[in-house]
Design a protein around this nucleic acid. Structure first.
Length: 594
RNA sequence: GGGGGCGUGGUGAAGUCUGGAGUUCACGCCGGCCUGUCAAGCCGGAGGUCGCGGGUUCAAAUCCCGUCGCUCCCGCCA
């Protein structure tokens, strides 16, 4: 039906006879002559239709409409002098059509297929198959495929074996909420969709694979965000006889290769590294955006003897005073007070703003409480220049860091992702503070601690052999060195709070597997959707996923999730709970009433 | 579960704060004219339950209450 791609035609093709097929991207009907931009997956070329020409029907030619699917044949010719289009790769030529067949007409479209206007996303998802014809989505699909192809090439060159692991697995209560799949053959029993192939890739290490990778679909039934979908894709890999450095080495190679492929630039190696502790101290987060400074500065000593009661009380109680120099914000009073509101919404009791005036005076609601040493100290420590806005907060250390870290992002984060700042965050703690102040595990229970004894005796200080890859303030993925010693694994499970019987019941099979000569191993998983979305400068991962869900977890195109028949439920041994049926009845009532 | 933003012909926006006739702009659609355009041009036309429900008012796109949908964020995501 076609022998060339529309976007492939060049000056060298002049004189050739070609058969093309694609879609009517645009038509310019002059009455006596009709130009059509014919689009296929290779690009666009202008075709010229003369309604009076032999072999063409004037009715058909004038009847062409946007997105008609057509096939044409004709001669490639150079465009007349002065009518070349330098904005088009094929702009030097055009195709003089002498055969035209409408393969499939198109109704008027629900929205226009160019990137000029931002169409409502529900509409786009409802007609995703049309949305995919738009340049933005078409290019994103290509970019995603190229990224994955590049990853496969790198992994293959490094000697990794691509292996698939099951997607119907046993549910485990830790971590994210599982998606459950009812079993028909074992009524009342359920599979879970994997949140990651974690235990299976460790079993592959025990199985002697040594180097495994997989482009793995993962599922997590948690609330959706710009960078989170129910199902997402990871480049998952694991290596035997490995430690952390081997993993980071592979990650750098992968990240550089994919960046070169999609961006045409080569990131500098080695990637910078920050310990978890340092990242938190300087940026208030474990995934700092290093494209800008605005670091958090400790000012506790500056205010050690302060007469400003709000600060003095916090310091006396063992808290801290820290600040950021947000630079020349130029905010009016209402904007500055808005920052205080924002800080309160993030959990702060208060926030102090200070604007440095032209001659160095400090304008602030609390200026009158600060003595000369304190003024000079904070100006010097924050490197404040006239025009700068300084934001200070006093409270318990972690809260101060988190709130200032959020404000730092609000005020300093660049809009797009033109610049790329890769970062490894290493030396994660084993535990993190939970809701009620007690320690909860920060990682899955197969993560190797740096030292089991410290983990037992001083859990708050214990470090794990865990690490993250961060790009522009987004966590691209995380990994760890795994426990390969069954005795250590049993001990870690115990310290993490699993009673021996429970550990045996849940992980006994895995503990046994570790006993048959398990190589030391380590691995990682890269979130492909997030990675590509950043490289493509997209604001969310839905732009990288051909058929994503809305934030409420629905697909406006196919209508999923949907109800199923009683027969289907019966076969699975499932009955819906009364409150669900009551709710349905209520909805039916509401929709049928006038 | 909570907080913010958005919802106006097919599409995108303005109008909403400060109530006064469905008003405006661009694109698209339909018809006509037009042989060198490329976001073709010119002329004409059609197209609306201002998300939905209730309230206030002489009068509601506009104010109030509720609700639905989308989105961003918090919680959640070991």
């Amino acid at each position: 039906m076609k022998d060339r791609g529309a976007g492939s035609l060049r000056r060298e093709d002049v004189g050739a006879r070609v058969r093309l097929a694609g879609w009517v991207a645009r038509r310019r009907d002059h009455g006596g002559i009709v130009f059509v931009d014919l689009r296929d997956h290779t690009g666009v070329v202008q075709i010229v239709l003369d309604p009076d020409a032999e072999g063409l029907s004037a009715e058909v030619v004038h009847g062409l409409r946007a997105e008609y699917c057509i096939a044409v044949a004709g001669g490639v010719r150079a465009r007349p002098e002065g009518t070349e289009n330098p904005d088009l790769a094929t702009g030097a030529v055009e195709v003089a059509v002498d055969e035209l067949e409408v393969l499939s007409p198109a109704d008027p479209l629900p929205f226009q297929l160019d990137d000029r206007v931002e169409v409502d996303e529900v509409r786009r998802l409802q007609y995703r198959y049309l949305d995919l014809r738009r340049p933005r989505m078409a290019e994103n699909l290509v970019a995603r495929a190229r990224a994955i192809r590049t990853m496969r090439r790198v992994m293959d060159e490094l000697g990794f074996l691509e292996i698939e692991t099951p997607t119907l697995i046993a549910s485990t209560p830790e971590g994210a909420r599982d998606f459950l799949v009812p079993s028909r053959l074992q009524p009342g029993h359920f599979y879970a969709l994997p949140q990651s192939p974690q235990l299976f890739k460790q079993l592959l290490m025990i199985g002697g694979v040594e180097r495994y990778y997989q482009v793995a679909r993962c599922w997590r039934d948690e609330d959706l965000r710009a960078d989170r979908q129910f199902e997402f894709t990871q480049l998952d890999f694991e290596g035997a006889f490995w430690d952390q450095e081997d993993v980071l080495e592979v990650l750098e190679e992968l990240a550089v290769a994919v960046t070169e492929e999609l961006r045409g630039v080569t990131p500098r190696r080695p990637f910078p590294r920050l310990s978890f502790h340092e990242a938190l101290e300087r940026y208030g987060t474990d995934k700092p955006d290093l494209r800008f400074g605005m670091e958090i500065t400790d000012l506790s000593d500056v205010f050690a003897g302060t007469g400003f009661r709000a600060f003095a009380e916090v310091l006396a109680a063992g808290g801290t005073v820290r600040g950021i120099n947000a630079g020349a914000l130029g905010l009016a009073r209402s904007g500055l007070d808005g920052l205080v509101e924002r800080a309160r919404a993030l959990g702060a009791k208060g926030l102090v703003w200070i604007v440095v005036e032209d001659h160095g005076e400090l304008r602030s609601p609390v200026a009158k409480f600060l003595d000369d040493d304190e003024r000079a100290g904070l100006v010097a420590r924050l490197g404040a220049e006239p025009g700068d806005t300084l934001l200070l907060m006093a409270d318990e250390r972690l809260l101060v860091l988190e709130v200032l870290g959020r404000l730092r992002l609000d005020l300093g984060r660049p809009e797009g992702h033109d610049e790329l700042a890769y970062l490894f965050v290493v030396d994660y703690p084993v535990f993190e503070p939970g809701d009620d102040g007690q320690l909860v595990p920060a990682h899955h229970p197969f993560t190797a601690p740096v030292d089991v004894e410290t983990m037992r005796r001083n859990p708050a200080e214990a470090l794990a052999k865990a690490y993250d890859l961060v790009l522009n303030g987004t966590e691209l993925g995380s990994g760890s060195v795994r426990i390969h010693d069954p005795a250590v694994q049993a001990e870690v499970l115990e310290i993490l709070g699993f009673a021996p019987e429970e550990a045996e019941r849940r992980f006994g099979w895995f503990l046994e597997a570790l006993r048959y000569g398990t190589p030391p191993h380590a691995g990682f998983a890269v979130g492909i959707d997030r990675f590509v979305s950043i490289l493509r400068n997209e604001p969310n991962i839905r732009e990288i996923i051909p058929f994503p869900k809305t934030q409420s977890g629905q697909d406006p195109l196919t209508g999923s999730p949907s109800r199923v028949s009683d027969a289907q439920l019966a076969e699975l041994g499932i009955a819906l709970r009364p409150e669900v049926l009551a709710r349905w009845a209520e909805e039916a009532e509401g929709s049928s009433g006038e």
